[in-house]
């Protein structure tokens, strides 16, 4: 099943995306949502993906899960490879949404949690039933065993009285409890990869802190890798080992969490970091901003996608030519003509 034209994945590599392209055919023409996205996830690490709305972060993980909408068009040159056990490379990008392999992988080897647990969970089934069905499907086990597993999982995500919670419906739980139930559901078959799409965005700060701590302790215990999607730089700093910053369907910068926060190379990363008001920061009169707004995806600027809002842009170069990916020490790279030549505006 592996693709002969791609070099084999190193053994620590769990997931490898190369040149992934996703567009959508709409009434108003084709929209390019994800352009040439390349990233990887190693076993047991947390990759944080940050970006504003419309940057393509969710569409990319939907391509991994093969859950793209019907009108999605994928570029032919791209590949998504997944090596769950270290001995077989699976080419997910060649799989159909409903293939036997994908149905095994989704919920079995890759778990997923979403922003809004109220809409992601079924409102007409108890939390226990939802977990049991997944366990019975993937583990081919009976009801009694599946129920015991559901109770065990609800305890693991630190819900009080798991024996009682297993028979509750989502509407009988608070937002924080529902998010815990969804994590239990995603972890029910011991996945090697957990995809978390803005899992704390809808929660209050104290609940968010609880969920982040829970995810970290579960990761320590179970050793799965996590792709954590968020627009909140504070959350990324708290949980990620490596970070990829997305803008208008492209990864504009990637590196270790320290490099991204303390030595960002891309003007977009730098500007974003400066535009967040930080706790304890000396009161400044004005926040730094990025001028304009994210261009609409039907009219992506030519050249560098960020040049229309960039303080360092050279209209002749940035406005016409897509920048190369410049590599730096420690696996950091930035999609910018001037990366490495700009003043580093980290903290």
């Amino acid at each position: 099943m592996s693709n002969p034209t791609l070099p084999p994945m190193p053994s620590e590599r769990l997931l490898d995306l190369r040149d992934v392209q996703v567009g959508f055919a709409t009434r108003d023409g084709r929209v390019a949502a994800v352009n040439s996205v390349t990233y990887h996830v190693d076993r047991g690490e947390v990759l944080g993906i940050v970006g504003e709305s419309g940057s393509g972060k969710s569409v990319t993980v939907r391509a991994i899960m093969r859950l793209l909408a019907k009108n999605a068009v994928e570029g032919a040159g791209g590949s998504i490879r997944f090596n769950p056990d270290g001995d077989r490379e699976l080419l997910l990008s060649a799989e159909h949404k409903n293939s036997r392999l994908m149905r095994e992988i989704r919920g079995g080897r890759i778990g997923m949690i979403f922003q809004e647990p109220m809409t992601a969970l079924s409102p007409v089934h108890t939390v226990g039933t939802q977990i049991m069905r997944t366990v019975m499907l993937h583990r081919k086990c009976g009801r009694t065993e599946a129920r015991a597993r559901a109770v065990e999982l609800l305890g693991k995500v630190q819900l009080p009285n798991p024996e009682e919670m297993v028979d509750r419906y989502p509407h009988q739980m608070s937002g924080g409890m529902r998010q815990r139930a969804m994590i239990a559901l995603a972890l029910c078959c011991d996945p090697v990869l957990l995809i978390a799409d803005e899992p704390t965005t809808a929660l209050d700060v104290t609940t968010e802190a609880q969920i982040l701590d829970l995810l970290k302790s579960l990761q320590d215990e179970l050793g799965m890798a996590i792709i954590f999607i968020t627009h909140n730089f504070g959350v990324v700093a708290d949980i990620a080992d490596r970070v990829a910053v997305m803008y208008l369907g492209r990864i504009v910068e990637t590196g270790s969490v320290d490099d991204i926060f303390y030595a960002p190379k891309h003007p977009y990363t730098q500007a974003l970091l400066q535009s967040i008001p930080r706790l304890g920061q000396a009161r400044v009169r004005r926040l730094k901003t990025i001028r304009g707004s994210v261009p609409d995806p039907y009219n992506v600027p030519k050249g560098c996608p960020f040049h229309t809002r960039c303080d360092f842009a050279d209209a002749a170069l940035c406005g016409t030519e897509l920048p190369p990916r410049k590599a730096f020490a420690g696996d950091q790279s930035a999609l910018c003509h001037f990366a490495g030549e700009l003043r580093e505006a980290g903290q």
Partner: peptide, 20 residues
């Protein structure tokens, strides 16, 4: 105040606040 995740990876390694 302690629950706000701070955009500063060093803070998480210097020990985390008590979570409510």
């Amino acid at each position: 105040l302690g629950a706000v995740p701070q955009p500063d990876p060093r803070k998480r390694r210097s020990g985390r606040r008590q979570v409510l």
